[in-house]
Amino acid sequence: MSSIIEIVQLTHIYSPGTPFQVTSLDSISLDIKKGVFFAIIGSTGSGKSTLVRHFNGLLTPTAGKVRVCGIDTADKRQRRNLWRSVGLVFQQPEQQLFEETVFADVAFGPRNMGLTEAEVTERVHEALRLVGLDPLAASRMSPFHLSGGVRRKAAIAGVLALRPQILILDEPTAGLDPQGKRQLMEHVEEFRRREGATIILVTHDMEEVALMAERVAVLNRGRLVMEGSPREIFSRAAELTAIGLDLPAPARLMRQLRLLGKPVRTDVLTVAEAEEEIAVLLGETLC
């Protein structure tokens, strides 16, 4: 598989040359393959959000190179069109809704693409269905009269309607209830299957990473400290806790059991795997 995002020695400094200068990213090199579900984790202030803003050209490197879909984001002309192929869902995207109806808000992106009204309608309907909203009701609903969860869905639909090749989600499930979280992740996976899109997920939720991601990058204070499959990453528990991160709950449980002297695997990631291990354990002790 080919790389869709290539990052070479990326450094980003905010307000350089002023008393407020902050080095947010420090010589990061990273390759993201096409079609992969990629997770970026790291404690608050580790530079995750800054990093993903380089992927659609909102920010450009202070030093180093970022190539997205073969386009160097330092190129001003090309950068301006990057939003057509790279969809970025910001943190709390529901706060960016502005139109009178949900339909009009979701249609904002496709209209900016210069599509015909028929194409716009088709895309809006598909995007709304994808996040589990009723397209017909949406043309009558004002986004300001909806619950937080529904508004979040509407806002995400607004990005899905662009049909991006790369979909970036910055803490999309923060503040949602467990069911809402699961549904949202299912919608994202559904979108990936249908469009063959690359997904980049920034999150604090380790269970989400364990369940969804194929590759994981770990940031700490602007540096890339680990990259690998979830199983590789979560096998380095001590290093993760040292930088303020944690293991998924099932992995934590298995480690506790191992500490109590039970013969269980500790490289378990999901609830299903943990269940299996516990069944084996119970079977042994019961018989």
Binding site: R53, N56, L58, W83, R84, V86, G87, L88, F90, Q91, P93, Q95, Q96, F108, G109, N112, M113, G158, V159, L162
Partner: peptide
């Protein structure tokens, strides 16, 4: 800044 970035990500000029 966040809102501008978000809307620019949807093609707003």
């Amino acid at each position: 800044e966040v809102v501008i970035s978000a809307q620019r990500s949807r093609g707003a000029g």
